[in-house]
């Protein structure tokens, strides 16, 4: 039972890494756009951080589930 619990925690932890891909995707596309049109980049940093925050929040959710499986169940 406990083994399965830790296995689940590990699988949930993978979500964090996948969220990292998402965050990287957001940042990479922002950079690509910013290099294409540098004058518009400055005004869009807030949007960048909001996008990163939304992408990262879901990764944190999966991390939280991992922690719950590890410590709280």
């Amino acid at each position: 039972m406990e083994g399965i619990q830790f296995l689940g925690a590990g699988i949930a932890g993978l979500g964090t890494g996948i969220a990292a891909l998402g965050v990287g995707n957001v940042a990479a596309n922002f950079l690509a756009g910013a290099l294409r049109n540098p004058s518009a980049a400055g005004s869009q940093t807030a949007t960048l951080f909001i996008g990163i925050a939304f992408a990262e929040a879901l990764g944190i959710f999966s991390f939280l589930i991992a922690l719950l499986l590890m410590f709280a169940v």
């Binding site: 925050a53 939304f54 990262e56 929040a57 944190i60 959710f61 991390f63 939280l64 922690l67």
Partner: peptide, 13 residues
């Protein structure tokens, strides 16, 4: 939910 968990989760992690 996401608003609070994002902050606490990041800092705790």
């Amino acid at each position: 939910m996401s608003h609070s968990i994002r902050l606490a989760g990041n800092v705790m992690a």
